[in-house]
Write a protein that binds this DNA or RNA. Structure first.
Lengths: 133, 133
DNA sequence: CTTGACTCTGTAGTATAGTACAGAGATTAT
DNA sequence: ATAATCTCTGTACTATACTACAGAGTCAAG
């Protein structure tokens, strides 16, 4: 099997070299075998692993959660239901965050509607609203 | 004018003592006068200021942005339009975050729809989708 | 064979928003 | 008077996700 240096893996995945080493320290990727001089020699599967991490991040999972997903993936005792549970929890989590942001948006829109952009900052209705008058 | 110790201010605002001192270091509240023994003696306006900070945070502003809002508020040259601009930028910012989260939600929902919760984690369609097969 | 590019380890710094002490002095309550 | 509570400074630590070196060694190209 062919092996890749860390720079090759970085190029193939778009993940920075320092970040790859960081992920190793964080136990998101296995420490690869080393050459005689100590260079990391990555198998192809590491490239797949990094893609997995990138995709999971896009879905909103934290590195800690991704590590847990990977552990589940590797655990023969783990079930599909376990995975589903994580995904559902994350979905609930995302919904909560959207909710919070929508509340912020609503408040900001109300404030902005009251503002005609005239006068000084002290007279600004937006500012007054936040100040609490 | 009556003055308040840091503990009183904390109680009145719900902001922790350590956090109040932290905000002072971050220049979000003015360093108050001190008693002979060095105790901070807060004017009432500090309580208002802390409420302002809390409300701004609820609207999604970072501490750095709040500091800028406060500077605008204090600047006689600043206009209501300046404030409005910040609020509009924040609104755009929030909309972007909502958008990103909605994309995550959409993807997660699709993944979850494909999962019947049967079998091992390796067979899980959610996992397979993230893995990229 | 030398130069430039690559990789190594280990440590430290970035940003955000606090939180947690230790050890000393001040104030309040009983 | 003494104990309990409060406050002080300064430093360090939390979590998250990287990013940036320094200084040394290694590999590939001309």
């Amino acid at each position: 099997m062919e092996t890749l240096t860390i720079g090759k893996v970085a190029k193939q995945t778009g993940v920075g070299i320092e970040t790859i080493r960081f992920y190793e320290r964080q136990k998101l990727i296995d420490p690869p075998p080393r050459s005689a001089s100590g260079y990391r020699q990555y198998p192809d599967t590491t490239v797949q692993r990094l893609h997995f991490i990138r995709r999971s991040k896009k879905l909103g999972f934290s590195l800690k959660e991704i590590r847990e997903l990977l552990e589940l993936h590797a655990d023969p005792q783990a079930t599909c239901g376990d995975i589903r549970q994580r995904a559902e929890r994350k979905l609930a989590d995302i919904n909560k965050r959207i909710d919070d942001l929508e509340k912020m948006r609503g408040s900001l829109e109300i404030l902005l509607a009251s503002c005609s952009s005239n006068g000084t900052s002290m007279e600004c209705p937006v500012m007054q609203a936040i100040t609490g008058e």
